[in-house]
């Protein structure tokens, strides 16, 4: 989605200070709600292994389909009697791992390449951007399905493909910021004072580019969580029995035949709240940093 908007909205969107509905300073209640939820998810994912939870993969047919709020199973159990709470936390680890690696790789590699070519310009820039455009012209889902068809399914392959697919969008974004930044006086001043190019790029431009890139990255985290859900649903995600939010929803989809809905609903709600919280935080930061929506 982030990428779609980047290519679509030509620079015509609203000057937000004039947009009455968005008026007001501060982050607002929703921003803090989003931040809290996101921190909870990250903390659960990090300390999940040390919590007194049940084994997420332990099968217990006697206890299958227990509803939410059952004794001993706060979020109920799934079609194999596995504890849903433990699986949600276990799945959060996978989701957070995939999305953080993807976004961090995208921001660091894409950010550096984009800033460098944006600052240098010339044929380096032309060639890089042509490559980026070719990569962005490919439908990402197809590339992913194609690679999985060839290389087989594993967490490692999924993370690598996600990270590679993420890089071009960040290059494009970082280049755009770098081009704006290099017109500012302090760059000319540093050049005149004899600062080396590497110094201008790494000490001057990159920290500035990173601020906006991180806003973009927060919104992109949500996109990666969705992408994991999609491939899990399509049966080409992280191999079973590893719980992921996407694979849990997919399991729940199969339980509809037995009129059981909580198996799909619980992970779906968790995924929705997490994406929503990332959008709220990203949007709040974007407004505060005055990054225009069209840039993202």
């Amino acid at each position: 989605m982030a990428e779609t908007v980047a290519r679509t909205v030509p620079d015509v969107d609203v000057d937000e200070s004039r947009d009455v509905a968005n008026a007001g300073n501060g982050f607002g209640l929703m921003f803090w709600f989003g931040l809290c939820w996101f921190i909870i998810v990250v903390v659960l994912a990090v300390i999940g292994d040390f919590l007194p939870l049940k084994d997420p993969n332990r099968i217990n047919p006697a206890d299958k389909y227990l509803p939410v709020l059952s004794e001993g199973h706060l979020l109920g159990t799934d079609q194999l009697g596995r504890d849903m709470l433990a699986r949600i936390v276990d799945g959060a680890q996978v989701s957070m791992f995939i999305s953080f690696v993807t976004v961090v790789v995208g921001i660091s590699i894409g950010g550096i390449i984009g800033t460098v070519v944006g600052y240098l310009g010339g044929w380096v820039e032309t060639v890089t951007m042509a490559l980026v455009n070719v990569m962005l012209s490919f439908p990402a889902l197809l590339v992913l399905l194609g690679v999985i068809a060839m290389a087989g399914q594993s967490l490692k392959i999924i993370v690598i493909v996600f990270a590679i697919l993420a890089i071009p969008a960040y290059i494009r974004f970082a280049r755009a910021s770098a081009i704006t930044l290099k017109e500012q006086e302090w760059v000319a001043a540093s050049e005149m004072m004899g600062a080396k190019r590497t110094r201008i790029i790494f000490r001057g431009l990159i920290p500035n580019v990173m601020i906006t890139l991180i806003t973009f990255g927060l919104l992109a985290l949500g996109g990666v969580i969705v992408a994991e859900g999609v491939i899990a649903f399509l049966g080409v995600g992280v191999p079973k029995p590893q719980a992921t939010w996407g694979s849990m929803i997919s399991d729940g989809n199969q339980a509809f035949a037995d009129d059981i809905i909580h198996i799909a609903l619980v992970p779906a709600a968790v995924m929705f709240l997490t994406i929503l919280s990332l959008n709220l935080v990203g949007d709040g930061l974007r407004r505060r940093l005055q990054v225009r929506e069209s840039m993202i």
């Binding site: 949500g222 929803i249 989809n253 509809f256 929503l276």
Partner: peptide, 16 residues
């Protein structure tokens, strides 16, 4: 809010 709901989640809710 809807923008935070990927289409497959909407599909699941509609199915339910």
């Amino acid at each position: 809010a809807v923008l935070s709901l990927p289409s497959f989640l909407i599909a699941i809710v509609l199915l339910i």
